[in-house]
Simulated assay, not measured.
Amino acid sequence: MTPRTLYLRLAFAEVVTWTLLILGMVGKYAFGYDWATTVGGSIHGFVFLCYGAATVAVWTDKRWSPGIGVLGLASAVIPYATVPFERSVDRRGLLDRRWRLGPGGEQPHSFPERVLAFALRSPVVALIVTLIVVAAVFSLLLVAGKPTEWFS
Rank of each mutant, 00 (worst) to 15 (best):
L101C: 05
I132H: 03
D34C: 00
G24V: 03
L23C: 08
G105S: 13
P112G: 12
A117S: 15
G67F: 13
T17S: 13
V56N: 03
K28D: 00
S139E: 03
V125R: 05
F85S: 03
P108A: 15
P123S: 15
I128K: 04
E86C: 08
L131M: 14
W150S: 11
C50G: 12
L142W: 10
L23V: 04
V143E: 06
P108R: 11
E86V: 06
I22E: 01
T60N: 07
P3F: 15
P3S: 13
E106I: 05
L73V: 08
I78F: 12
G27C: 03
V143L: 13
G32L: 08
L140A: 13
I68P: 02
P108C: 12
G72V: 06
T38Y: 06
V115K: 02
G69F: 12
T60G: 05
L49M: 13
L73Q: 09
G102Q: 06
F46N: 07
M25D: 00
A144F: 04
F138N: 09
S139D: 03
T2N: 08
L101A: 08
K28S: 01
E149S: 15
S152T: 10
T82W: 04
Y33H: 12
K146H: 15
Y29G: 00
V133C: 09
M25S: 12
G41A: 09
A135S: 15
V15E: 03
S75Q: 09
W64K: 10
Q107I: 01
A126H: 09
S122K: 10
A57R: 01
K146S: 12
R100W: 11
T55M: 08
G32W: 06
Y33Q: 07
K28N: 02
F151K: 09
W35C: 05
A53P: 00
A136Y: 07
G93P: 11
L8F: 15
V58I: 15
W35M: 07
L94C: 02
K146R: 12
M1R: 06
M1L: 10
F138H: 13
R121L: 06
G40M: 09
L73K: 00
S122V: 10
V70H: 05
T37L: 10
S139Y: 11
G145T: 07
F138A: 10
W18A: 00
F48H: 09
E113S: 10
P108V: 11
R9H: 11
V77H: 00
P66H: 10
I78S: 07
K146P: 00
V143K: 14
G93V: 07
F118K: 08
P108Q: 10
A30W: 10
A144R: 12
R97F: 01
M1Q: 05
F138R: 06
T37P: 00
P112M: 14
A30N: 08
A144V: 01
L8D: 05
I43R: 03
L120Y: 08
V16G: 02
G93R: 11
K62T: 05
I78G: 06
T17Y: 05
Q107R: 13
A53K: 03
G105F: 07
S110M: 08
V39W: 09
P84E: 03
M1N: 05
V137Q: 08
F118P: 01
L127F: 11
A81V: 11
D96H: 07
V133S: 09
G40A: 06
